[in-house]
Design a binder for these strands. Structure first.
Lengths: 186, 186
DNA sequence: AAAAACTACTTTAATCTTAAAATAGTTTGG
DNA sequence: CCAAACTATTTTAAGATTAAAGTAGTTTTT
């Protein structure tokens, strides 16, 4: 076991004020972060506990599940927004577990087509179904109206973020979302 | 440069329906994730670009900033909810950059007290100030009322999550938040 | 005061991620 | 057709994170 046994303390207990101008925005960000981390952490550990699978592998399987004819490595890399080197590694694990199969493209001998095996499809459906139930359970305390409101406000926030992002750095091919791996889907 | 140049595609464009029962919750989760990832990615890359500092180091400095008298390694570990092994490594980098100093506790020769150097305090203040401005900019498209509503709904979501969490796994010392490193603060 | 339990920290190993360099195959301009 | 440029992927190296094991010092129990 690790020596890590954190208290229920969460981000918002913190808050080092250096300036006071934009406290609310800061607090909002921290709360957003807390919620996301709680959910992501749960999904991650339940996937591991119940299915012995990592989140990146689940995400990749989700991508393939929707593409019955399979996908090129590069396509997967683009969709998951992770490097191709990373895709290579994840695919290797999934090949080993028999969830994925790989074949060289007929047209382009550089390109590799990967797709879920039949076992992989079955396996993914089980996981996806559990995953959906977990999330429903986590949001059980919200009404449908709460959920709708949250969706609306987060859409607005996202628009605001995109507006801000487009002003900054993104000069050319800068990865705009940056560390967006854990994309889940489903 | 990396070979990664992701399109503006984001999580919500995805969505592999395996069941249809709890679509809304799933979509809410994906949107939450997208927003968090966008913000976190921006903070991460701006910290690196503008101050040549990683997020964990910034987080650790934030913890120390609030503790004028310094803190034990274990205390930092608990607060950041990362393993002590991880803290050791991060502190080593901050020692090298001169932002942090370390001394053995007088009472307990196993324990190490770490604290920001004067240079570290100055350095942190600059970063924290920029950080606050970045976040304010990102939420610029929201009204104060939007922010207040979001805070309220997210508080409710958090409560729902905590209720769900307490039912699950957390039998004993299971890290309840699980992958809670990036805690930011300020 | 010695054994057992506990606490603080470090070390090691495994996984994941990114970046950069290397390799292999394809397309294009002259 | 051939060299140069481009594209797709793999490989390699470095950093971060987690878990687990190890080390050292302290407290508690008998």
């Amino acid at each position: 076991m690790s020596d890590l046994s954190p208290p229920l303390l969460d981000a918002e207990t913190a808050g080092t004020e250096v300036g006071h101008a934009h406290q609310d925005e800061l607090r909002l960000w921290l709360r957003l972060l807390t919620c996301t981390n709680m959910i992501e952490g749960q999904i991650r550990s339940r996937l591991r506990a119940d299915f012995d699978v990592t989140l990146p592998r689940f995400d990749l399987m989700a991508q393939l599940y929707r593409a019955a004819d399979g996908m090129m490595m590069s396509e997967v890399s683009k969709r998951m927004m992770v490097s191709s080197g990373n895709v290579t590694l994840i695919v290797e694990h999934l090949l080993a577990s028999g969830d994925v199969e790989r074949q060289t493209s007929a047209h382009d001998r550089r390109a590799q087509l990967i797709r879920l095996t039949e076992a992989g499809r079955v396996h993914f459906r089980e996981m996806a179904s559990a995953h959906e139930a977990w999330i429903a359970g986590m949001f059980d305390g919200l009404t449908q109206k709460d959920i709708a409101n949250l969706m609306k406000l987060l859409a607005k926030a996202k628009a605001s973020l995109q507006a801000d992002l487009s002003q900054h750095g993104s000069s050319a091919d800068t990865p705009v979302v940056k560390k967006p791996s854990s994309r889940r889907s489903r």
